[in-house]
Nucleic acid binder design. Structure first.
Lengths: 251, 251
DNA sequence: ATTGTTTCCGTATGGCCTACGGAAATGGGG
DNA sequence: CCCCATTTCCGTAGGCCATACGGAAACAAT
């Protein structure tokens, strides 16, 4: 399926939900069996366990022992529910502003990575039109404050911000993708690659791929550690080099 | 919906399709109405026009004026079809090895970006367990050859490779995400943000977000150009800084 | 007990993938 | 010309999904 899209609905309604605008308790009428918070929590629980694909309205309602359509009283639709889920888990990062601007960005990357690890379905949530809730906004503020302290020009800060944010989310998403696939298909990444041993035997052409062959012969692929560990190493390397570049560009 | 997952099926069968292993023409039996190539082409056409979500087996069959189930004679299932589509469009990059290693990586990034622009549904295809076909492999070889020429140690080349590949695909995906959403929802990114003006009016808190406020006041967000143009600028900046860092790390 | 308000939820529509198995087409041998 | 092995075509059916609609049920105030 294609990536989950969020927030097509009425912006005012969605924003009120994201910021949980307190509404005066209704004096009359039937008492609600569930709250928005309960729905969001249940939806996150389902997605954590079985992936975003399994997070259907029916499944969440079942979790809460409520009729499917009851959810629509509290939440406009599935897209908005996903927005609420995403912002909720982004709030789990506790971002303490300590150390140099670089250390703070690394801290931000770590915390964000932890969110993706805990909630692998975040890979499937597009951040191009993000939920404008407290979870997202607090993160933006944190990164912008760090970059502003770095000495970059204001205009440069905004450009660097998009690059850093993109790298962090992209890296976290890729890294988690492997685990999500493992959970969804019941096959680990290492096992998947192992099953494709045939490829190297039957299709790989040393004439066509000299650089890969040379690297292989040089022992560049004799790594210890799992696929996941190697990915993590690469991403740390990438972020460090990106920050090197940003730092160097200021001088 | 969650991201499209590929290639769970029999590796040997999928590899044979990806590399179009020629099979001797059957002397007897009913003549096929469609070929694998026709199916892949039709599927790409549908996805280009209406998104990967609309690319159903029924829709592709309709395109070819053939019964839905006929497709399954030629292709094991939908996941494998997506693998074939992805590898086919990756083959559209013509990667000519000219210039310095840096220029070649930039060239690779440009060509890959062009693929995503032409086929926005690539955003929804996971590259963690990629289709091991010629399109993907030629790209890998190209990047590895460039990095090997940069003077990095073999082990470092493989680490840098993951970082670069991740950045390029991630950047291309993000950039295209906006257009894909615009096409899918009929609302442009600029218009979406415009409709969320309410947010700045009703929810944004200058006390809570001093860094953002300061940047706003400093005119850092007074950009001309569309959202898409600004994203493109940021991604170029990010890739340049990443390559700066890689270059600097060698000294 | 009635009324106004709010929430709950059963039903129905139209979509998706694909297992299964029979129908239809094809070329060769009698 | 007929038969038959072989191959492809494809209708049906089962079990998922989101959500529009409208009536039933619960509750407070009168």
């Amino acid at each position: 399926m294609a990536a989950e899209r969020s927030g097509g609905g009425d912006p005012a309604r969605t924003l009120a939900l994201l910021w949980r605008t307190p509404q005066e308790p209704k004096p009359v009428g039937r008492k609600p069996k569930v709250s928005v918070d309960q729905i969001v929590t249940a939806a996150i629980a389902v997605a954590d366990r079985e992936g975003l694909g399994a997070m259907s309205m029916a499944r969440v309602a079942q979790e809460l022992t409520v009729g499917t359509m009851s959810l629509y009283t509290h939440v406009p639709g599935k897209a908005e529910l996903i927005d609420l889920m995403a912002d909720a888990v982004l709030q789990e990062r506790d971002l303490t502003p300590e150390g140099t601007w670089r250390e703070r960005i690394k801290h931000y990357a770590d915390r964000t990575r932890a969110v993706y690890q805990a909630h692998p379905w975040m890979r499937d949530v597009s951040m191009v039109r993000p939920p404008l809730g407290p979870g997202l906004m607090d993160g933006q503020e944190f990164v912008l404050a760090a970059l502003a302290d770095s000495g970059l020009e204001p205009r440069q800060v905004t450009v660097a911000h998009v690059a850093v944010e993109g790298f962090v989310h992209g890296a976290a998403a890729s890294e988690v993708d492997d685990q999500q696939l493992a959970a969804a298909t019941g096959e680990s990444g290492d096992s998947w690659w192992g099953a494709r041993q045939v490829f190297w035997d039957d299709y790989f052409d040393v004439e066509r791929y000299p650089a890969m062959t040379a690297l292989w012969n040089a022992g560049a692929y004799d790594t210890e550690g799992t696929l996941a560990e190697n990915m993590h190493r690469s991403w740390n390397y990438g972020l460090d080099r990106l920050l090197d570049g940003i730092e160097g560009g200021m001088r």
